[in-house]
Design a protein around this nucleic acid. Sequence first.
DNA 1: GGCTCCGATGAAAGCGCTTGCAGGCAAGGG
DNA 2: CCCTTGCCTGCAAGCGCTTTCATCGGAGCC
Lengths: 340, 340
Amino acid sequence: MPAKPSPRLADVARAAGVSLATASRALSEPDMVREDTRSRVQEAVAMLGYVPHGAARALATRRTRTIGAVFPPVDNPIFAGATHALAQELAGAGYTLLLASHDYDADAELAATRALVERGADGMVLVGLDHRPETLALLERAGVPYEITWALDPGAMIHCVGISHRSASIRVTQHLLDLGHREIAVIAGDTRGNDRARERLAGVKDALAARGLRLPARRVIEMPFSVANGRKGFATLLKRAPGFTAVIGGNDPLAIGAFLEAQARGIDVPGRLSITGFDDIELAGELPPGLTTVRVPSAEIGREAGKRLLARLAGKAVPVIREMAAPLIVRGTTGPVAGK
Amino acid sequence: MPAKPSPRLADVARAAGVSLATASRALSEPDMVREDTRSRVQEAVAMLGYVPHGAARALATRRTRTIGAVFPPVDNPIFAGATHALAQELAGAGYTLLLASHDYDADAELAATRALVERGADGMVLVGLDHRPETLALLERAGVPYEITWALDPGAMIHCVGISHRSASIRVTQHLLDLGHREIAVIAGDTRGNDRARERLAGVKDALAARGLRLPARRVIEMPFSVANGRKGFATLLKRAPGFTAVIGGNDPLAIGAFLEAQARGIDVPGRLSITGFDDIELAGELPPGLTTVRVPSAEIGREAGKRLLARLAGKAVPVIREMAAPLIVRGTTGPVAGK
DNA sequence: GGCTCCGATGAAAGCGCTTGCAGGCAAGGG
DNA sequence: CCCTTGCCTGCAAGCGCTTTCATCGGAGCC
């Protein structure tokens, strides 16, 4: 390893023939310093290849210019899109993203949150409302502003940017009911520790109840999000409680899995079976006949969370709740119930 | 905002009735401290809700326990998977991921790298071999160990973990040649600033050349990676230079796009047209008849990069080059050329 | 031309933690 | 019973930067 110690600001100051204080100001408070002094400092910086020492600066300013995000599996395309958008938004303001991910595990989330707070995150982004109570308490105590994404706090007490999963889910279900479907099955996401999945399922029940219908337990199956599980879940439902005319997928991969399995079994979609998803990933629009789904603006959620946090750090007030639109996108996998 | 200042280690020390030094050791060097002293300190920590101040620690130790990663769009599923695996691997060792992403832009990559070095990343993960020369120079100068992922340095001078895109691509092409295909078209990824895409394309040409064949320029189109672009690219090729019997996609989304477009046009796959992809994303195996592709172990690459970096930081030596297997996965989209 | 006022610079005190060094104490050996 | 050996603990000096406060010189004013 290179033994040569990196140059410090003092070296820059010496090379530029100014004091440490002036060198510091030339870099972080440019217009407090005379033009020519500033350029001498900058030359020295370039010559020495000086790179500021973030930890030292952070210690002195009590700011790291870093935002922490704790996400469920970032490999879910929707979180990936949000992560990218968030990172971009932050980079534009000179901030950097500290990312931790977990597998829908509240304890891991707490540990990750603690790690990010220790690292000095100036703000935090979390997903959903299911957390260990200590998680939010920790942030409050440390005085770290945070944004909850995807979900919306019903009490409107904490800063959120997201959508109402329940009402979107109600719209999906109503769409199916309007098409005449009465026998509906659900392949839900894993609802343990995932309030979004829970709300989506609850929305289906709500919509049915509003028309005096019930969702029998055997018509519901929970599966971790993936195409393969969509297939599996569909196959299981078919065996366990056949007779349904529509399947509501907890997200798009699950719905696409169900669709592929139906196709493989020669079940005509949407002729004999309607299918809906949730999220509107790219493939939903590309895979014929097009998946009926809810568009969740995940990249915008990420970007918006970043914007709001930056605004709050700059002392500006932002509305506590930022609800995004989540329109129903009707495509080819839903149609009138057969025989109507 | 809560005005109450967070407790410092000195407060913990006072509460526990020990000196600052002892409190520090109780937390970071537990077995230098007697059992009962340690537990008194820990009680004080719990009571005060003490959270260590990372910047201060970093300043004193010259270590941030943080690894930086600069990735192209993290919303590409393969990078997303690698990011998740990397973050998990690091978390297991008490490290945290500093993530920056860019849109295949070398200047943005350089800026992001500088930002992460300033933040004190103890190590860095980059993707591919296309960089501004300053990027690697900066890391060398700062003495920050780094790993290149996905690609392999032909000179074996820099630490890499990845696959040989060229030879994998050669295998794909040979597979098609073996099936009798001679008229081959390519929907490549955008090769500007993307050495992987370039190598894949070069591999196709190599394999053809080895059998005395050429790849005419009009049979090649470059498109940013996406399903929609796969469709578009395929349509363009069909118009511009029809008569090919096989399409090589630069990655799976492009190949899937081509496949969907072919299907939409009633072209029988693999009867009249063979299609191959690259990466082996989940859908490649799920979408009938199954996409023939190359399996790129992206999550393993991420995990391995983390492992190697941690090992190097711990002073262990690791082989400079870590080549991962990238097997050809033959599925249903490739078959013998029609009429053979 | 002398005085005031202001803008630019410098000196120095931290920011919160780690760590080399030294001191203190108890146990063990002579 | 005194001294050595070792284990814990405490003191204090940084780690590299920011920022208050004081200083200094010069321009503007009368």
